[in-house]
Design a protein around this nucleic acid. Structure first.
Lengths: 106, 106
DNA sequence: TATTTATGAAACCAATCGGTTGCAAATATA
DNA sequence: TATATTTGCAACCGATTGGTTTCATAAATA
């Protein structure tokens, strides 16, 4: 089935994994040490993250290092873009009001 | 149970609803017309969105107008912040390389 | 007042989710 | 070579999800 970034970041453990490997690549075992679950559960999360290209792997002997595909994270940012326009314009509206109040004070 | 924004935006129908009511408040019936599901299904989505304060309602007679709580959307933006730092610094790294190539050309 | 309209809530259902245990395969090490 | 380590995969399980149908309630309208 088709994997989706938004579905991938829906799980709190996966968000924690993402944050964990954002700065340095880590093996599944090392990642699992940070959570209260089995290594296999972490492995399944990594599989989901890999399926939607949020994470990339690099084999090194029998170890596999997982790291964040930061470019993919921009897709969320891109989706947020349409709403950012709104909250920025709302801020501007408020800004105008404040400026009006200011100028009326004079 | 505790509702989460990330879980709320995980569903594609809910993301579509969010985009739909971002600019103008709409009733459940009007929203449902845009989807290939029953009004009740949309109602359940709206309930989930309301639970995590992504959406607010305003009763008007027997109609209820739903609209986006844009402030709540900033929470996603805030979470993205930690990664934005990374992709911006990566861009700067690339920038430096390009500048080095440029200066070496001279 | 009787009827239509707009809505939420409950009961149910198949599919998916996040977790587990158990296993097989590949690589490193004694 | 025998053993230990690292990992992915399959089978299973209870809880949750997104959908449906059915019903109750409140407001508008004939």
């Amino acid at each position: 089935m088709r994997r989706d970034i938004f579905q991938a970041i829906a799980d709190p453990t996966r968000r924690a994994i993402i944050a964990l490997i954002a700065f340095q690549a880590m093996t599944p075992n090392a990642i699992a040490e940070n959570f209260n679950t089995t290594r296999q559960a972490v492995s399944k999360h990594l599989q989901i993250l890999t399926e939607c290209r949020l994470v990339k792997q690099e084999q090194q002997g029998r170890e596999i290092y997982y790291s964040l595909e930061i470019e993919k994270m921009k897709e969320i940012d891109k989706w947020l873009g349409q709403f950012r326009k709104i909250w920025e314009s709302r801020f501007n509206e408020l800004d105008k009001v404040l400026l009006t109040i200011k100028s009326n004070k004079k």
